[in-house]
């Protein structure tokens, strides 16, 4: 008897499988909303918030950033993607010399998106951007200066 039972059981499982795939096919052929393909250049891509596209530096509306030039990120980076050019200038109020960044140089072409620099930064000056349109015709264009020209340190970060 198990022979006939096998045949019937086999047909039943096959029909179950076909019901599942049919449940994908027929809705998706009637209504495009079930299709998960994004036709990217024509339709905007859906990018997750956690997507690690490139490292950027946060600036507020007065063109101030939070980077103190401590170089922790430069040390943390395992492949030397970050170089910081800094200087010491005299603070008029306190009369002390303080470290300021001139250029926070970031080599996107070398970066492995490992997140170590962002974790190392004591002042949360740098963060991830979800931008992924990074292709260029020349490698040198991937070397970026993260602090905007003319920007300065936000007051109160160093305390």
């Amino acid at each position: 008897m198990s022979y006939i039972g096998d045949v019937i059981g086999g047909i039943k499982t096959l029909l179950t499988g076909m019901k599942v795939t049919g449940g994908y096919f027929f809705p998706s052929i009637i209504n495009k909303k079930y299709i998960i393909t994004r036709q990217y250049p024509d339709e905007p891509a859906i990018v997750m918030d956690r997507f690690k596209g490139e490292v950027v530096m946060w600036h507020n509306e007065n063109n101030e950033h939070r980077c103190t030039g401590c170089q922790a990120c430069e040390i943390a980076c395992p492949n030397g993607s970050i170089e910081i050019i800094w200087d010491r200038v005299l603070n008029e109020e306190t009369g002390k010399k303080v470290k300021v960044i001139d250029q926070h140089i970031y080599h996107l072409g070398m970066c492995t998106m490992c997140n170590l620099c962002i974790q190392a930064c004591p002042t949360n000056a740098i963060m991830w951007s979800t931008n992924f349109h990074n292709s260029t015709y020349d490698r040198s264009q991937l070397t970026k200066v993260l602090n905007k020209p003319g920007s300065k340190l936000m007051a109160g970060v160093e305390e």
Binding site: F25, I29, Y34, I35, I36
Partner: peptide
């Protein structure tokens, strides 16, 4: 095309 629709692709 049919394969694509079975897999929710285009």
């Amino acid at each position: 095309r049919v394969a694509a629709f079975f897999q929710l692709r285009l």
